[in-house]
Computed example of a mutant assay.
Amino acid sequence: MNDYPELSAMHLDALREISNIGMGNAVTALAQLVNRRIDMKVPRAQFMPFEETIALVGGLEEEVACVSLRILGDVPGTVLFVFSGDSARRLVDLLMGMPPGTTVELDEIGQSAVKEIGNVLTGAFINALSQLTMLNMITTVPMFAMDMLGAVMADLMIASGRVEDHVLVIGTDLVHEGEMVINGHFFLLTDPGSIDKLFAALGLA
Rank of each mutant, 00 (worst) to 15 (best):
R70L: 04
R70Q: 10
R70F: 09
I71C: 09
I71W: 03
I71F: 05
L72Y: 04
L72E: 14
L72P: 01
L72G: 02
G73L: 01
G73H: 02
G73N: 02
G73R: 01
G73A: 00
G73E: 04
D74R: 05
D74K: 08
D74Q: 01
D74L: 03
D74H: 05
V75S: 11
V75A: 09
V75P: 03
V75M: 12
V75L: 10
V75T: 12
P76T: 01
P76H: 08
P76W: 04
P76F: 04
P76R: 05
G77P: 07
G77W: 05
G77S: 09
G77L: 02
G77V: 02
G77Q: 11
T78V: 15
T78G: 05
T78W: 15
T78Q: 15
T78N: 15
T78S: 14
T78M: 14
V79H: 01
V79L: 07
V79Q: 10
V79W: 03
V79E: 06
L80E: 13
L80V: 06
L80H: 15
L80C: 13
L80F: 11
F81G: 12
F81Y: 13
F81R: 03
V82S: 08
V82F: 04
V82D: 02
V82W: 07
V82H: 01
F83W: 13
F83C: 14
F83Q: 15
F83E: 10
F83H: 14
F83L: 15
F83Y: 09
S84W: 07
S84Y: 13
S84P: 05
S84R: 12
S84D: 12
S84T: 13
G85D: 12
G85N: 00
G85S: 09
G85A: 09
G85F: 04
G85E: 06
D86G: 04
D86I: 06
D86W: 02
D86T: 07
D86L: 12
D86R: 03
D86F: 00
D86K: 06
S87F: 06
S87Y: 05
S87K: 04
A88W: 11
A88P: 06
A88M: 03
A88K: 03
R89N: 08
R89T: 08
R89A: 09
R89Q: 05
R89Y: 03
R90K: 15
R90T: 01
R90D: 08
R90S: 11
R90H: 13
L91H: 03
L91C: 14
L91G: 13
L91Q: 12
L91M: 15
V92S: 05
V92W: 06
V92H: 03
V92R: 02
V92L: 05
D93G: 13
D93N: 14
D93K: 14
L94H: 06
L94A: 04
L94Y: 02
L95R: 12
L95K: 09
L95H: 03
M96Q: 14
M96T: 06
G97V: 12
G97H: 12
G97E: 11
G97Y: 02
G97M: 13
M98L: 15
M98T: 12
M98A: 12
M98W: 10
M98D: 00
M98G: 01
M98H: 07
P99C: 10
P99Y: 08
P99M: 07
P99A: 02
P99F: 02
P99L: 10
P99V: 06
P99T: 11
